[in-house]
Amino acid sequence: MTRAEAHAAILAKFPDAIVRDGREGKEAGDPYLVVKAERLHDVVKWMKEDPGMRFEVLQCLSGVDYGKDLASVYHLDSWTNKVTVCLRVELPREKPEVASITDLYGAADWHEREAYDLLGITYTGHPKLVRILCAEDWVGYPLRKDYVFPKEYHGIKNDL
C-alpha cells in the first residue's frame, strides 16, 4: 500500500471528516490529511481496526503552533502494509480540544501529556492529563508562539 492509496481509502470511508488532502500548493515534504477534530477518534479507530488498513502504531504525536491555529499531528504507521500516514487536526487557539486516543494506543498517553504540557491542547478522555516535562505548578504553555518566559520561578531569577 502506498501513502496515496491509504489517503484514498480514508477519503472514501470518511468523506465528511476530512477537511483537505495533501500538500497545499507547492509545499515540500510529506503529504498529510487534515481531519475534523470531532471525527478524529473515529478515523483513527477505523484505521487501526480495519483489516485492510491495520495502522498498528502511533509513531509520533506532536502539537504544533502555526501562529494562527494550533494543531495536533499524528503519524500513524502500518507495519503490515509498510505505510505511514500523517493526520493533522487543526484546533482553535482559544479552546484547543480533541478526543484522546489513549484507548487505542498506549503510546498516546505520554505524547498527549507532552502536547498538553507544552502547548495546552486538551485531550478529552485522557486518563491523567497532567504536566509531564514541566513542573506541576508551571504557568503557561512554553511552546506557544505567544509564550512569555516568567521572570521568576520559586525565587529563581530569569535575568536573560
Partner: peptide
C-alpha cells in the same frame, strides 16, 4: 532556508526509532 512544508523522518538510533518532525 528549506522550502515551506513539513516532513517526518526517522532513523534507527541505538535505542530505537528516532524521528524528527520539522515544520518549515
Amino acid at each position: 532556508r528549506p522550502p515551506k512544508g513539513e516532513v517526518y523522518y526517522r532513523i534507527e538510533n541505538p535505542r530505537g526509532e528516532l524521528g524528527f518532525y520539522v515544520v518549515s
